[in-house]
Design a protein around this nucleic acid. Structure first.
Length: 884
RNA sequence: AGGCAGUUAGCUCAGAUGGAAGAGCAUUUCUCUUACAAAGAAAAGGUCGCAGGUUCAAAUCCUGCACUGCCUACCA
């Protein structure tokens, strides 16, 4: 083994091996249970960021662990075409490079450009996933717009269409004028913005005076079709049913009532603009109001006086305010902050406007998706996400699935057209290809709907489309691998994606797409800020890999990933992880170096000494915890347990103690301890391998030479432990003594190189002293003790320090080192500390209720504490007296 | 406005079923002891956000409050 661990070389070597040997390819096998994950497909434009790294490392860890357990595991890779986001990028490039817009090229040539670009840029992110070590089955790379996935989309659409669940209707939709497309409700991000409330007079008709309305959107007065007040608002009771004139245009509208109106906001009067506001639209529906559109899809004013016609919203607002003020309609302007919807892809302000769009009726699907969670067919990890999921589904409105962009799955709906190329009145037809003949009018000419589907429509089909549902519903692979086992995702796409997959899974497969939903947190930087390009606080995982190695990155992320909690991650986390990886390397090096000197090891382990039994017992306990943690997707707990066991138990104690036998000239003794060193190392390597596959693969291979690689091995069974509790107890006694001697040495400034003597004194021999006698080599080795003597009831030798453990006194004669004053101070401190303990425990024991109500074991424990403390005080006092 | 999470050592975080406060990093002191100075040994550091309550016993359970973050929402 090399002295220095070089991750780069090892990472590359092992990934290449896995790919070449198809280590992670899976086929249906009726004799084995499947465990399946489909990757949340990253966008084709994507570059690996920390969020991806975390998400995929967690998936990889889970799937690798399941493989060790003997499951037929499959992890399906793929990418998403990414709709608007991707089109935006290519549009920008087109503008920059050729100065053209997509319209200059036309739909077909623009799509051609997109495809060219896609081929050129390729699936960069998939290559980056390889760098992370992801155990994906690379023979199955899927893309949401490839042939099979496209078939699935069409098939799903047609089925829903024919069921009457997809319909086209003119409705109020969220509109991004920059992307020139409709967006679904959840594609909007709200941001607080400083704005104003403008108070505008609406003159009453047939009466004197006016009514004042507060609004954030003065430019929309042209679209008002009513004013609304709350019927319980006494201020306005006598105005209900009266009419007012809209300022600047003098159109007449009525004052109506609606319960939605908040008496206490503004003046308690709402101007109702049904074409451009969601709640106003509701009011209009309830009150059968007219709808006047005044903003078009380009964000320009329409149906307004010519001086405003064609202005954009900002301009129109400025002008309207100016004119209102000039004509004395403006009463007051208040500062007002409110949240404004913005496009989640380009941050343009969203306009609400009337537009004809395709909608999917989600009523029944939502109901079934809610049932699945309520009936515990789907488990959330952590559970707290179940409620938001259900709440969201309960309030879900029909999904606007059409987008007015070009990049995506074109809606497979065809309209028959007449000789003049105008649409006929025949019902549109949904079909895979252009129909041959209209079933209604027998015409043979058709045009296809111009719109494409929301990206998330194809994403929602992902768990079934990757198994070729589009081509064959009875596909062998679909039958075997679906439903998948777990979905691993961040909470930001719970609604956008997860809930919809459940809906579609139940709709098309009659079965949920996965049994478990594992939701992890978002990664923040060292200061708790969300990582974003604008804040320039993005940490590039590839850079971390470069700096510290892939395993270090993986380890740090896995450790931070407490389910459902956002996490801060900074350079020190990676540094600490790198140090641990390094520790694994060095400890393994110690084992392999010594292995060289013996020819062959027996496979069977022979625990002989206390430390052997102890480490095996500790390993059994730890490995049980680690497995449990993996099973529950608590990867962070697994990491912690691994870290603790390996570093503080295996390295700090067992390896150190093993050196006594390792250096023995008796080869059998050496082999005996080596067999256990190797056994534990191999076992813990297996348990580590899901998190840090590279270094564990390498060391495993060095230890095993011609055996199967670690990724293809099966977890060792947990050995039986007949010596469990006592070995831990005994070892703890020894450790306690060693630590206390070390502490004393440190306090007395005795250099580590100086060996000292120790006398153990008791009133009578007991179990403890027996254990110490049996394992005195351990104390000698780790506490640097030259020789140990055992006495019954002797006085403290002169110039010696004392350590008290139960009824045992350890005298350390420290000629030349001991500083009497220092020792006095030390013992006095001990006394104070112990007295506090006595006080606390006595108080507890004097409490009658405690004696009466606490369980027996607890009382016993407390009594023992008191006895020990009293004994200790007595002995310390004796020592202190002898010092004087 | 509602919902959900968080508040534990200087920093980042662990702490099922209530029974003596834990880790890593940073700090201090020793040590190149034959795997490892990216290390070893040791020390210091906490009225577990605040206020009540339940209990013999609360970081842990309950209630209220404060602050932070996220999500949802029709406040014009």
């Amino acid at each position: 083994m090399k002295k220095k661990f070089d991750p780069k070389e090892i990472d590359e070597k092992w990934y290449k091996y896995w790919v070449e040997n198809k280590t992670f390819s899976a086929k249906p096998n009726s004799k084995k249970k499947p465990f399946t994950i489909v990757i949340p497909p990253p966008n084709v434009t994507g570059h690996l960021h920390m969020g991806h790294a975390l998400n995929n490392i967690l998936q990889d860890t889970i799937i690798r662990f399941k493989k060790l357990q003997g499951y037929n595991t499959l992890w399906v890779p793929g990418t998403d075409h990414g709709g608007i986001a991707t089109q935006n990028i290519v549009e920008k490039l087109l503008k920059k490079n050729e100065g053209k817009t997509k319209h200059d090229l036309g739909r077909e040539r623009f799509l051609q450009k997109m495809l060219e670009w896609r081929i050129k840029t390729g699936d960069v992110i998939l290559d980056q996933l390889k760098k992370l070590g992801c155990s994906l089955d690379w023979d199955r790379v899927a893309f949401t717009m490839d042939e099979s996935r496209s078939k699935a989309v069409k098939k799903a659409f047609i089925q829903l269409f024919n069921k009457g669940l997809i319909y086209k209707r003119k409705r109020l939709v969220n509109w991004c004028s920059r992307c020139a497309t409709a967006l679904s409700d959840i594609e909007i991000e709200y941001e607080y913005e400083k704005s104003n409330l403008w108070y505008i007079k609406y003159p009453l008709i047939n009466f004197k005076g006016f009514i004042v309305v507060a609004t954030t959107r003065p430019e929309t007065i042209f679209g008002d079709t009513a004013l609304a007040v709350n019927s319980e608002d006494k201020k306005y009771t006598n105005l209900i049913g009266k009419s007012v004139k809209i300022p600047l245009i003098d159109r007449e509208i009525k004052i109506i009532t609606d319960s939605i109106v908040d008496k206490s906001f503004g003046t308690g009067v709402v101007k109702v603009t049904p074409a451009h506001d969601a709640s106003d639209n509701e009011i209009a529906r309830r009150n059968k109001l007219e709808i006047v559109e005044i903003i078009d899809i380009n964000g320009k004013m329409i149906n307004v006086p010519s001086k405003y016609q064609g202005l954009n919203i900002e301009e129109a607002r400025r002008k309207v305010i100016e004119d209102l003020a000039a004509e004395n309609f403006l009463v007051r302007i208040d500062d007002y902050d409110h949240s404004i919807g913005k496009c989640y892809r380009c941050s343009t302000k969203i306009e609400l406007l009337m537009s004809e769009q395709w909608f999917l009726d989600v009523h029944d699907m939502s109901k079934r998706a809610i049932e699945a969670a309520n009936n515990e067919k789907i488990f959330f990890h952590p559970q707290s996400w179940k409620k938001p999921y259900i709440l969201w589904l309960e309030n879900l409105r029909d999904w606007c699935i059409s987008r007015q962009i070009w990049w995506g799955h074109r809606i497979p709906v065809y309209y028959c057209i007449n000789e003049k190329d105008d649409r006929t009145n025949c019902k549109p037809i949904a079909s895979f290809d252009k129909p041959k003949e209209c079933p209604y009018c027998k015409r043979k000419k058709f045009i296809q709907d111009e719109d494409v589907l929301d990206t998330w429509f194809s994403s929602a089909l992902w768990p079934i489309s990757v198994f070729n549902w589009g081509e064959d519903e009875n596909d062998k692979e679909l039958k075997y691998f679906y439903p998948t086992s777990v979905l691993v995702t961040g909470h930001e796409i719970l609604y956008l994606w997860v809930a919809r997959m459940v809906q579609f899974g139940i709709e098309f497969m009659k079965e949920i797409p996965y049994d478990n939903i594992f939701i992890h947190g978002i990664i923040r930087d060292g200061h708790g800020k969300k990582m974003s390009k604008s804040l320039a606080n993005v940490v590039d995982p590839l850079k971390i890999i470069d700096q510290y190695g892939t395993d270090a990155l993986r380890f740090a992320l896995a450790q931070a990933a407490t389910p459902g909690r956002d996490m801060q991650i900074s350079n020190t986390s990676f540094l600490a992880a790198r140090n641990f990886i390094n520790k694994i390397w060095n400890a393994s090096r110690f084992v392999t170096l010594n292995l060289k000197e013996v020819d062959k090891l027996d496979n069977a382990i022979q625990p002989i000494e206390l430390s052997d039994k102890w480490i095996i017992t500790e390993f059994i306990n730890s490995s049980t915890k680690i497995k449990k943690a993996y099973e529950a997707y608590n990867v962070d707990n697994a990491v912690r347990e691994i870290y603790d066991f390996f570093w503080t138990k295996y390295c700090d104690w067992y390896i150190e103690l093993s050196k006594i036998r390792i250096t023995s000239t008796n080869l059998n003794i050496k082999k005996q301890v080596l067999s256990i060193l190797v056994y534990i190392l191999k076992s813990i390597l297996q348990l580590m391998s899901p998190i840090i596959p590279f270094i564990t693969s390498e060391i495993w291979q060095i230890l095993n030479k011609n055996e199967k690689i670690i990724a293809e091995s099966f977890l060792f069974p947990i050995p039986e432990n007949s010596y469990s509790k006592s070995s831990i107890c005994k070892m703890n006694t020894i450790q306690d003594i060693i630590i206390k001697i070390r502490t004393l040495r440190s306090e007395m400034d005795i250099p580590p190189t100086v060996q000292i003597e120790a006398s153990f004194n008791t009133l009578c021999d007991n179990d403890k002293i027996e254990i110490i006698r049996e394992n005195k080599n351990y104390i000698k080795q780790l506490a640097k003790i030259k020789s140990m003597q055992f006495y019954n009831n002797i006085a403290k030798p002169k110039n010696s320090a004392v350590i008290i453990i139960g009824d045992i006194e350890i005298f350390l004669p420290l000629e030349g080192f001991i500083d009497i004053e220092k020792e006095k101070a030390r013992l006095t401190k001990e006394i104070i500390f112990t007295n506090q303990e006595i006080e606390k425990v006595t108080l507890k024991l004097n409490n009658e209720s405690f004696i009466k109500k606490a369980p027996e074991t607890e009382i016993e424990k407390t009594k023992t504490r008191l006895d020990e403390a009293k004994l200790k005080i007595e002995k310390i006092n004796k020592s202190l007296n002898s010092l004087i």
